[in-house]
Simulated scan of single mutants.
Amino acid sequence: MQYSQKSFENLKKSLKNREEFLPFDFLGRSLSYNPYMPRALIEDFKRDGKIAKKCFALPAFGYDNLAFAASLNSEVIRVDFSSLYEDNILGADAFDCLTQLRRYSEKIIIHNDIFLNQYQVLESCIYGSDCVVFDAGILAKELSKMCEFATRLGLVPIVKISSLRDIKMAIFARAQILYIAQDFSNLIASIPNSKIVLCDLSAEVSELDEKNSYGVDMFFVSV
Protein backbone atom coordinates (compact mmCIF):
# COMPACT_ATOMS: atom_id res chain seq x y z
CA MET A 1 0.00 0.00 0.00
CA GLN A 2 1.32 3.41 -0.95
CA TYR A 3 0.65 6.15 1.59
CA SER A 4 -0.04 9.74 0.61
CA GLN A 5 2.14 12.70 1.52
CA LYS A 6 -0.71 13.93 3.72
CA SER A 7 -0.64 10.69 5.71
CA PHE A 8 3.07 11.13 6.43
CA GLU A 9 2.59 14.78 7.37
CA ASN A 10 -0.22 13.94 9.79
CA LEU A 11 1.79 11.06 11.23
CA LYS A 12 4.81 13.28 11.89
CA LYS A 13 2.60 15.93 13.54
CA SER A 14 1.02 13.22 15.64
CA LEU A 15 4.42 11.90 16.73
CA LYS A 16 5.69 15.39 17.55
CA ASN A 17 2.65 16.07 19.76
CA ARG A 18 2.90 12.72 21.55
CA GLU A 19 6.63 12.99 22.16
CA GLU A 20 6.28 16.53 23.52
CA PHE A 21 3.54 15.39 25.91
CA LEU A 22 5.42 12.25 27.04
CA PRO A 23 9.13 12.13 26.09
CA PHE A 24 10.82 8.86 25.17
CA ASP A 25 12.67 8.53 28.50
CA PHE A 26 9.51 8.94 30.57
CA LEU A 27 7.63 6.55 28.31
CA GLY A 28 10.39 3.99 28.74
CA ARG A 29 10.24 4.19 32.53
CA SER A 30 6.62 3.08 32.44
CA LEU A 31 7.79 -0.34 31.21
CA SER A 32 8.75 -1.19 34.80
CA TYR A 33 5.07 -1.37 35.77
CA ASN A 34 3.57 -2.39 32.44
CA PRO A 35 1.06 -5.25 33.00
CA TYR A 36 0.91 -6.14 29.29
CA MET A 37 4.31 -7.45 28.30
CA PRO A 38 4.45 -9.17 24.86
CA ARG A 39 3.57 -12.89 24.76
CA ALA A 40 3.98 -13.95 21.13
CA LEU A 41 6.54 -16.44 19.89
CA ILE A 42 7.71 -16.80 16.30
CA GLU A 43 6.38 -20.37 16.32
CA ASP A 44 2.84 -19.05 16.88
CA PHE A 45 2.74 -18.02 13.20
CA LYS A 46 4.08 -21.20 11.69
CA ARG A 47 1.43 -23.48 10.22
CA ASP A 48 0.87 -26.80 11.93
CA GLY A 49 0.15 -28.92 8.86
CA LYS A 50 -0.49 -28.50 5.15
CA ILE A 51 -3.13 -25.77 5.50
CA ALA A 52 -2.21 -22.19 6.38
CA LYS A 53 -3.60 -20.52 9.49
CA LYS A 54 -5.91 -17.51 9.45
CA CYS A 55 -5.54 -14.17 11.19
CA PHE A 56 -8.44 -11.72 11.14
CA ALA A 57 -7.46 -8.16 10.25
CA LEU A 58 -9.58 -5.21 11.26
CA PRO A 59 -9.21 -1.44 11.44
CA ALA A 60 -8.71 0.37 14.74
CA PHE A 61 -11.97 0.18 16.67
CA GLY A 62 -13.86 1.82 19.51
CA TYR A 63 -15.07 0.27 22.74
CA ASP A 64 -18.45 -0.52 21.15
CA ASN A 65 -16.75 -2.99 18.80
CA LEU A 66 -14.52 -4.62 21.41
CA ALA A 67 -16.85 -7.59 21.93
CA PHE A 68 -16.88 -8.25 18.18
CA ALA A 69 -13.08 -8.12 17.95
CA ALA A 70 -12.66 -10.40 20.95
CA SER A 71 -15.15 -12.93 19.57
CA LEU A 72 -13.45 -13.45 16.20
CA ASN A 73 -12.48 -17.09 15.70
CA SER A 74 -8.75 -16.58 15.38
CA GLU A 75 -5.84 -16.91 17.79
CA VAL A 76 -4.22 -13.85 16.21
CA ILE A 77 -5.77 -10.43 15.48
CA ARG A 78 -4.20 -7.69 13.38
CA VAL A 79 -5.31 -4.15 14.21
CA ASP A 80 -4.56 -1.57 11.50
CA PHE A 81 -4.00 2.13 12.20
CA SER A 82 -2.20 3.04 8.98
CA SER A 83 -5.26 4.32 7.11
CA LEU A 84 -6.23 6.76 9.89
CA TYR A 85 -3.47 9.28 9.17
CA GLU A 86 -5.01 10.35 5.88
CA ASP A 87 -7.62 12.41 7.73
CA ASN A 88 -6.41 12.53 11.33
CA ILE A 89 -3.60 13.61 13.62
CA LEU A 90 -3.77 10.81 16.16
CA GLY A 91 -3.39 11.24 19.88
CA ALA A 92 -2.07 8.47 22.13
CA ASP A 93 -5.64 7.54 23.06
CA ALA A 94 -6.12 6.21 19.52
CA PHE A 95 -4.25 3.08 20.60
CA ASP A 96 -6.51 2.31 23.55
CA CYS A 97 -8.18 -0.46 21.57
CA LEU A 98 -4.93 -2.45 21.76
CA THR A 99 -5.08 -2.33 25.56
CA GLN A 100 -8.80 -3.16 25.59
CA LEU A 101 -8.30 -6.18 23.35
CA ARG A 102 -5.34 -7.33 25.43
CA ARG A 103 -7.30 -6.95 28.68
CA TYR A 104 -10.42 -8.78 27.55
CA SER A 105 -9.02 -11.53 25.31
CA GLU A 106 -6.11 -13.94 25.05
CA LYS A 107 -5.54 -13.27 21.35
CA ILE A 108 -2.10 -12.42 20.05
CA ILE A 109 -2.22 -8.81 18.84
CA ILE A 110 -0.41 -7.57 15.73
CA HIS A 111 -0.10 -3.78 15.58
CA ASN A 112 -0.09 -2.65 11.94
CA ASP A 113 0.94 0.98 11.50
CA ILE A 114 3.26 3.31 9.62
CA PHE A 115 6.24 2.87 11.91
CA LEU A 116 8.97 5.47 11.55
CA ASN A 117 10.83 5.46 14.87
CA GLN A 118 11.47 3.64 18.13
CA TYR A 119 9.06 5.83 20.08
CA GLN A 120 6.14 4.21 18.24
CA VAL A 121 7.50 0.73 18.97
CA LEU A 122 7.80 1.53 22.67
CA GLU A 123 4.23 2.87 22.66
CA SER A 124 3.00 -0.28 20.97
CA CYS A 125 4.58 -2.45 23.64
CA ILE A 126 3.13 -0.39 26.47
CA TYR A 127 -0.36 -0.41 24.97
CA GLY A 128 -0.34 -4.20 24.88
CA SER A 129 0.58 -5.43 21.42
CA ASP A 130 2.60 -8.59 20.84
CA CYS A 131 3.89 -7.94 17.31
CA VAL A 132 4.59 -4.96 15.09
CA VAL A 133 4.58 -4.71 11.29
CA PHE A 134 7.48 -2.79 9.76
CA ASP A 135 7.43 -1.75 6.10
CA ALA A 136 10.84 -2.47 4.58
CA GLY A 137 10.21 0.02 1.79
CA ILE A 138 9.59 2.84 4.27
CA LEU A 139 12.26 2.09 6.88
CA ALA A 140 15.02 1.01 4.47
CA LYS A 141 18.35 1.34 6.31
CA GLU A 142 16.57 1.82 9.65
CA LEU A 143 14.85 -1.56 9.40
CA SER A 144 17.58 -3.49 11.22
CA LYS A 145 17.62 -1.07 14.16
CA MET A 146 13.84 -1.15 14.43
CA CYS A 147 13.72 -4.96 14.37
CA GLU A 148 16.46 -5.15 16.97
CA PHE A 149 14.69 -2.65 19.24
CA ALA A 150 11.35 -4.46 18.93
CA THR A 151 13.01 -7.76 19.78
CA ARG A 152 14.66 -6.24 22.85
CA LEU A 153 11.21 -5.21 24.07
CA GLY A 154 9.91 -8.73 23.56
CA LEU A 155 7.83 -7.85 20.48
CA VAL A 156 7.89 -10.03 17.38
CA PRO A 157 8.81 -7.91 14.33
CA ILE A 158 7.00 -8.72 11.08
CA VAL A 159 8.52 -7.19 7.96
CA LYS A 160 6.27 -6.17 5.10
CA ILE A 161 7.85 -6.74 1.70
CA SER A 162 6.90 -5.98 -1.89
CA SER A 163 10.12 -6.51 -3.85
CA LEU A 164 13.31 -8.57 -3.99
CA ARG A 165 15.15 -5.60 -2.50
CA ASP A 166 12.80 -5.69 0.49
CA ILE A 167 13.51 -9.39 0.99
CA LYS A 168 17.24 -8.70 1.11
CA MET A 169 16.73 -5.94 3.69
CA ALA A 170 14.49 -8.19 5.79
CA ILE A 171 17.08 -10.99 5.75
CA PHE A 172 19.83 -8.53 6.67
CA ALA A 173 17.63 -7.34 9.57
CA ARG A 174 17.33 -10.99 10.71
CA ALA A 175 13.55 -10.89 10.46
CA GLN A 176 12.00 -14.33 10.83
CA ILE A 177 8.49 -13.40 9.64
CA LEU A 178 7.87 -11.78 6.25
CA TYR A 179 4.55 -10.33 5.12
CA ILE A 180 3.93 -10.20 1.37
CA ALA A 181 1.55 -7.26 1.36
CA GLN A 182 0.23 -7.67 -2.17
CA ASP A 183 -0.18 -10.48 -4.67
CA PHE A 184 3.50 -10.94 -5.40
CA SER A 185 3.38 -14.70 -5.74
CA ASN A 186 6.71 -14.62 -7.56
CA LEU A 187 8.36 -13.44 -4.34
CA ILE A 188 7.55 -16.61 -2.42
CA ALA A 189 10.15 -18.57 -4.38
CA SER A 190 12.81 -16.07 -3.34
CA ILE A 191 12.12 -16.31 0.39
CA PRO A 192 14.32 -18.78 2.31
CA ASN A 193 12.47 -21.85 3.57
CA SER A 194 13.47 -20.99 7.13
CA LYS A 195 11.31 -17.85 7.09
CA ILE A 196 7.64 -17.69 8.04
CA VAL A 197 5.45 -16.15 5.34
CA LEU A 198 2.25 -14.15 5.84
CA CYS A 199 -0.03 -12.96 3.03
CA ASP A 200 -3.36 -11.25 2.48
CA LEU A 201 -6.12 -13.69 1.60
CA SER A 202 -7.62 -12.96 -1.80
CA ALA A 203 -11.35 -12.20 -1.84
CA GLU A 204 -11.65 -14.86 -4.53
CA VAL A 205 -10.57 -17.61 -2.11
CA SER A 206 -13.50 -19.03 -0.17
CA GLU A 207 -11.71 -21.90 1.55
CA LEU A 208 -8.08 -22.72 2.22
CA ASP A 209 -6.55 -25.92 0.91
CA GLU A 210 -3.08 -27.34 0.26
CA LYS A 211 -2.82 -25.66 -3.13
CA ASN A 212 -3.61 -22.08 -2.14
CA SER A 213 -1.67 -22.52 1.12
CA TYR A 214 1.54 -23.31 -0.76
CA GLY A 215 4.46 -21.43 0.77
CA VAL A 216 2.25 -19.49 3.21
CA ASP A 217 2.03 -20.02 6.97
CA MET A 218 -0.76 -17.55 7.75
CA PHE A 219 -3.27 -15.48 5.79
CA PHE A 220 -4.74 -12.15 6.84
CA VAL A 221 -8.52 -12.11 6.44
CA SER A 222 -10.09 -8.63 6.38
CA VAL A 223 -13.29 -8.14 8.39
Rank of each mutant, 00 (worst) to 15 (best):
190 S>Q: 10
209 D>P: 02
162 S>G: 15
48 D>C: 03
145 K>Q: 14
154 G>D: 09
70 A>V: 11
161 I>H: 04
191 I>K: 01
87 D>Y: 14
218 M>K: 07
161 I>P: 02
117 N>V: 09
193 N>C: 04
223 V>I: 14
46 K>S: 06
133 V>N: 01
67 A>M: 01
205 V>S: 00
63 Y>S: 11
131 C>K: 02
35 P>F: 06
169 M>G: 01
113 D>E: 08
101 L>Q: 06
131 C>S: 12
37 M>E: 11
83 S>P: 03
67 A>P: 00
95 F>E: 06
15 L>H: 08
168 K>P: 00
115 F>K: 02
177 I>D: 12
175 A>D: 13
120 Q>A: 06
185 S>K: 07
219 F>N: 02
86 E>Y: 06
27 L>V: 06
215 G>R: 08
48 D>S: 15
163 S>T: 14
189 A>W: 01
141 K>D: 15
164 L>D: 14
42 I>T: 14
216 V>G: 03
32 S>V: 10
5 Q>S: 11
66 L>P: 11
7 S>L: 00
223 V>M: 08
17 N>T: 03
11 L>E: 05
175 A>Q: 05
116 L>E: 12
28 G>W: 04
219 F>V: 10
131 C>W: 05
185 S>R: 08
124 S>R: 00
217 D>F: 10
198 L>H: 01
13 K>L: 12
19 E>Q: 15
43 E>K: 11
132 V>M: 03
74 S>E: 01
166 D>E: 09
27 L>C: 07
159 V>L: 08
219 F>H: 07
23 P>W: 02
4 S>D: 05
68 F>T: 15
109 I>N: 02
99 T>M: 12
58 L>M: 15
198 L>W: 04
82 S>A: 15
86 E>P: 07
41 L>F: 14
155 L>N: 11
188 I>A: 06
